[in-house]
């Protein structure tokens, strides 16, 4: 490989590593048209230890609603799947014709609107094929599959008529307390 080849490869790699998935279409289109690069959209990064500042895209602390279609929505801190709210349901209800699983995994997410931690039940919506919209993976507190109820890699469509996974909701089931 020539030095210039290496420079191209390294530059490409660095650019790729610092560019978010969402900006791809916009930037690719602009690039093909010979235009300038657009500003990058933020990528959600799982935060370290709570408490933390709201991440870019999270609801303003003064707005308790936020955007349930956005992966950055506070309730989705431990989700891994397609958001029901983008698939015909809402963040608390499943899309039409699916069945909500009764057993789930649990996450603990901080609501930036009130600064409290809530226990979130991530019930899966089952019986139709993968929705394919709004894939969201955040892994705060996620544990391996052998630590079952804290694992978001499991298809929780269990005990339902069909185990085919469609999407996921995020239901507040309690306020988290220090143990």
């Amino acid at each position: 490989m020539t030095i210039i080849d290496r420079w191209f490869a390294r530059t490409a790699r660095r650019l790729a590593q610092h560019t978010s998935r969402r900006s791809f279409l916009a930037r690719f289109g602009v690039a093909i048209a010979g235009g300038a690069a657009l500003p990058l959209l933020p990528v959600a990064r799982p935060a370290g230890a709570a408490p933390r500042e709201p991440a870019p895209g999270e609801p303003d602390p003064t707005s308790p609603e936020g955007d349930p279609n956005a992966c950055t929505y506070w309730r989705y801190c431990a989700v891994d799947g397609f958001l029901s709210s983008c698939c015909g349901g809402t963040h608390t209800s499943c899309p039409p014709g699916t069945e909500m699983s009764a057993i789930t995994w649990l996450g603990t997410c901080r609501n930036p609107a009130d600064g409290k931690d809530y226990v979130i039940s991530y019930n899966d919506c089952c019986g139709k094929d993968i929705c394919g919209r709004c894939f969201c993976q955040r892994n705060e507190g996620d544990k391996p599959v052998y630590y079952t109820h804290k694992s978001n890699d499991i298809n929780w469509c269990m005990g339902t008529e069909s185990s085919i996974y469609n999407s996921t909701v995020a239901v507040v089931v309690g306020v988290a307390t220090e143990s």
Partner: peptide, 17 residues
């Protein structure tokens, strides 16, 4: 170096998954 253009544009501007 035009043969590197594809790498630069696609892998440079597009995000890495």
């Amino acid at each position: 170096p035009l043969n590197r253009l594809s790498d630069l544009l696609i892998y440079g501007l597009a995000p890495s998954f």
